[in-house]
Amino acid sequence: MERYPTTDEISLQRETHTVDGYARYIGETFRKYLGGKWIIELDNPKHAFYNLPEIKSEFFRDCPLSFVIASTDRRIGHYISDILKNFIDSE
Rank of each mutant, 00 (worst) to 15 (best):
Y4R: 07
P5D: 02
P5E: 08
T6I: 01
T6F: 00
T7V: 10
T7C: 10
D8V: 15
E9S: 02
E9M: 04
I10R: 05
S11N: 13
E15L: 04
E15S: 05
E15T: 06
T16A: 15
T16N: 15
T16I: 11
T18N: 06
D20L: 12
G21E: 00
G21N: 09
Y22V: 00
A23D: 01
G27R: 00
E28F: 06
E28N: 12
R31E: 08
R31H: 05
K32V: 00
K32M: 02
Y33V: 04
Y33A: 14
L34D: 02
G35N: 07
G35K: 08
G36H: 06
G36F: 04
K37Q: 15
K37P: 04
I39Y: 02
I40H: 05
I40W: 03
I40C: 11
D43N: 15
D43P: 05
N44L: 00
N44R: 03
P45L: 08
P45V: 12
H47P: 11
A48H: 12
A48G: 10
Y50A: 03
N51V: 09
E54L: 13
I55F: 01
K56H: 07
F59S: 15
F59L: 09
F59K: 14
F60Q: 03
F60P: 01
R61S: 08
D62G: 14
D62K: 15
C63G: 08
C63N: 05
C63M: 06
P64E: 07
P64Q: 13
L65N: 05
L65W: 10
S66A: 12
S66E: 09
V68M: 04
V68I: 08
I69G: 02
T72H: 02
D73R: 08
D73M: 04
D73Y: 08
R74P: 08
R75M: 08
I76H: 01
I76G: 00
G77P: 08
H78A: 13
H78K: 06
Y79L: 05
Y79M: 05
I80E: 03
D82W: 06
I83D: 11
I83S: 10
I83K: 15
F87T: 10
F87D: 13
I88H: 03
S90Q: 11
S90K: 15
